[in-house]
Design a protein around this nucleic acid. Structure first.
Lengths: 209, 209
DNA sequence: ACCTGAACACCGTTCAAGT
DNA sequence: ACCTGAACACCGTTCAAGT
């Protein structure tokens, strides 16, 4: 074989295949990826410097999608709520992706654009300059933590009804299925967080998200 | 050598050594751990079923510490704030520990006890049963996400002053050092979250944390 | 430039062998 | 029970060799 006249691999294809592997039973491995693409491992390395770079490409792909649908007008609460929802839901088809991305420093340029936009929204909303970064970081922490819940097992805590009475009550009163439970918690936290932020701005936290 | 009359290894020693390795340059590996303990790899496996179990033991150790200092009296805001602060600060000596723990399902019993206690506080505070789990999950997501910030690089975003004007402004107005920056964001988010929760309870969110 | 096969260092885990 | 040395399967990465 060796060098075919028309390349049989490109970065887009590689990222596609990698994304499919991330949440598969075997996870993302270079041999597994090569296999799925029908090439040899070393061939993949001709298009991607290393595994780290591959993960950054995946991050860019995900971030790009998310950013596309963002509505730039409207009140800050709505914009931030939309962004956070899309941020998180971008991960739902790939439950294990969050953990993969968390393990690694951000360098994808698409992500920078997003934060730039969000920073603008926050400043325009009236938050003082020193609070802008904290606000971003808090939203980020919350979205990331919430996205992690998507890949949690159905039974997060093996609570014992007699030893853990309160916890058992709490669990029984919430949806049993992971995604439904995570969704509910996310929406609940979103409202709390936005209410808290509105309160800091001196606004009445009654507005709808 | 073979079986010495007095064992030269036990679980506590192993967890100690493992904790030291987690945030070291080489990270936590079984060969590295054996090396640090001065024994062979297979020897470690005699005390710990596998790497997964080892990580669970580490989780238990950390959770145990944290829970010890919890003040059980006082208003719910204070109790939750204290818990969240200790939760997060338990990770600060081991910046990379969060990522290690996140990769794995919780099974350490010490952690269950904690959530049981927190569930009790939340219910006693007056939150309806259906909101108890969401509240716990939201606090959890936030604390976890915030703990992740502790291991972030000094320069999280390589923001370009001309292309990312708002982001640059935000970054310039915040502490430059990782830990100081993460601390500020955490305290800010903590207040927002508790304010938002107080608002849901019908309380005036003016109380000090 | 773009692909292959073979190789290397490293990791998690197991197992027969010793006391 | 508790330790060792050797082995296995697997992973990320490199490199000379081919067109």
């Amino acid at each position: 074989m060796a060098r075919p006249k028309t390349p049989r691999l490109n970065r887009a294809m590689i990222v596609d295949a990698a994304l499919e592997l991330v949440s598969s039973s075997k996870g993302l491995t270079m041999p597994g990826l090569a296999d799925k693409l029908g090439v040899s491992v070393s061939s993949v390395y001709h298009h991607v410097r290393n595994r780290t770079e591959l993960v950054e490409l995946i991050r860019g792909r995900i971030a790009g999608r998310e950013f596309g649908d963002l509505d730039r007008n409207g009140p800050w609460r709505t914009v931030l709520a939309t962004w956070l929802r899309e941020y998180r839901s971008a991960f739902s088809p790939y439950p294990d992706l969050v953990r993969l991305l968390i393990g690694q420093t951000i360098s994808a340029p698409e992500v920078l654009e997003q934060y730039e936009y969000i920073a603008g929204v926050i400043i325009a909303a009236g938050f003082p300059r020193e609070e802008a970064l904290p606000v971003i970081m808090v939203l980020d922490s919350f979205a990331l933590g919430s996205a992690l819940d998507l890949s949690a097992p159905d039974e997060i805590w093996a609570a014992n009804p007699t030893e853990h009475a309160h916890l058992t009550t709490a669990i029984a009163a919430a949806p049993a299925e992971v995604v439904a439970r995570a969704d509910a918690a996310f929406e609940y936290g979103l409202r709390c967080l936005l209410d808290g932020l509105a309160f800091r701005l001196g606004e009445t936290p009654t507005a709808t998200t």
